[in-house]
Design a protein around this nucleic acid. Structure first.
Lengths: 288, 288
DNA sequence: ATTTATTAATGTGTATTTTGCATTAATGGA
DNA sequence: TCCATTAATGCAAAATACACATTAATAAAT
């Protein structure tokens, strides 16, 4: 059952004239005649009542004309949709990203994506640092934006941004600028820091920072969630070290003091992920 | 776009293995490989991600697998339905019949039809005698059961039954049997008769009846509807002449006196009506 | 590291199907 | 009765699909 045959049938069912129809669909009358015959034979029923002079739909033919028209439309739509999936213009992608960039990079990126591919479905999720690679490998997420360098085989990774680290203090705090920082003055402070994670490159940078001042900080509380940390600092419960992306969040009552340490933001994906949606998004991310 | 190709695709999308699938669908692996390739080419997209070792659906392929399965089911159902239309096992037929047989022949006929073709849709309509042929020719009805012989070209006709005419009188009427009828006694009666129609063979029979008694009846009322006539007779407003099929109606308070005149019941249809439903019904009507 | 088994793709000749051209046969109208 | 129209058909050519054998890539085994 060739769909082309059905198209010929539909054309003939409109014209009810072999010669005119044949011309319209660019085949000879003989070919059309045989196409209809084989269609009838294949279905085991008669589509047209015809003699050498007139062509007329049978009740079954009339029924099939109506139904097939609907089906062909449906199928055409399906094929178009599939084509969009193929081109990565439609489909779903799940992205995990850290809280730090939800007010800076993410809005920009999402705006870019929706402008270029309005039909795309994007799912944003927050995943604990320690789970990101596992989720990526288990197809729970397709893209992981993180501050950790990964060395997993099968995961590809690329830096998309660099942030300075900043010391975050309440507005009424004695630290006004980088000059106020010293081993002595820092030793007095209570710190709110991210959860320490063995082998996490982000914690290593923070460790390195304290090492440069040669002391071990008094860590009053660990939290992985930047917004929690910021709220605690604002209440005067301690001071924190965060990527300066957080300056883009509307956070009154806080002062950010830039530090000479940088943290990279990386984007990770499965090396064997051939979803065209991913390719399109990576292209967008890297194109400028 | 050959539906067979889509079936091959669906088989492969289940097995994800060319050799096994090829065996299952009874072609060689080479043929299957090319079928899938040409399908991909035709659609302009990739259905499977494959290397020499593994076969896996792409997102577009996964989508098409789901959709095509539904569409193929739909199409198969449509074809089955069309086949039934072709065989006359499904479809609609509109039948006009006189009131006189609605309690005798019609129930029998309808029972027969629904037993043989349970999927058939039957529309019963009451049409005035004078309109029957016109409605038949204009495709408003497909079968006309009537007591009138027609001589229209293009309309085929066959007798299916013969009724005696009967004189219908109230139970308390002095006429008890055929012996009570005479020109004198009949002259005293008021008659309720069918609408007189020039050239109608049924009225001609009734005319012939009165001619045999050599008088012109005192016709108090004309009606074409048997049930109306019966109601009037029961109320004692007059007596009537009807086909004795009416004896099958539950009509207490009436006496039917058979007369030695017969009226034929004919079934009429368009000679050029090739609706298979019609053929099946005619076969049923004439088969015994 | 090398070998082996597996398996999708492909080159090639053959078989099948479809097509176009020319012709035929049926039919309605002049 | 003849003519014009038009769907069907015989036939050869073209296009397409197929099977067989082979190739090439790769995962598993040694």
């Amino acid at each position: 059952m060739d769909l082309q045959r059905i198209k010929y049938f539909l054309a003939l069912s409109e014209q009810l004239h072999y010669w005119k129809t044949a011309e319209k669909v660019n085949i000879t009358q003989s070919a059309l005649s045989r196409q209809i015959q084989s269609l009838e034979h294949e279905l085991g029923l008669q589509l047209f009542e015809r003699n050498k002079r007139n062509v007329k739909l049978t009740p079954a033919g009339k029924f099939l004309k109506e139904k097939w028209e609907l089906e062909l439309n449906e199928i055409e739509y399906i094929h178009q949709f599939a084509k969009q999936l193929h081109l990565g213009e439609r489909g779903t992608i799940t992205i995990a990203h850290p809280d730090s960039i939800s007010a800076s990079l993410m809005p920009d990126l999402l705006a870019k994506i929706t402008a270029a591919f309005p039909q795309l479905q994007i799912k944003l999720v927050q995943v604990l640092y320690e789970n990101q690679l596992e989720f990526l490998k288990n197809y729970k997420i397709d893209l992981a934006i993180t501050r950790d360098i990964n060395r997993e085989p099968g995961i590809r990774s690329k830096t998309i941004h660099s942030d300075h680290l900043a010391l975050v203090v309440p507005l009424d705090h004695p630290f006004k600028g980088f000059g106020d920082l010293s081993t002595e003055s820092l030793k007095q402070q209570k710190f709110i820091l991210p959860t320490k994670d063995e082998g996490s490159s982000y914690s290593e940078i923070i460790q390195a920072l304290f090492k440069s001042y040669e002391f071990v900080p008094d860590v009053f509380l660990h939290s992985e969630f930047g917004s929690t940390i910021i709220a605690l600092v604002r209440k005067g419960l301690g001071i924190a070290i965060l990527p300066d992306s957080y300056m883009h969040h509307q956070s009154p009552g806080l002062r950010f003091i830039p530090l000479p340490f940088k943290t990279d933001l990386l984007i990770n994906w499965r090396a064997d992920d051939h979803n065209p949606v991913l390719a399109n998004i990576l292209k967008l991310v890297f194109e400028n």
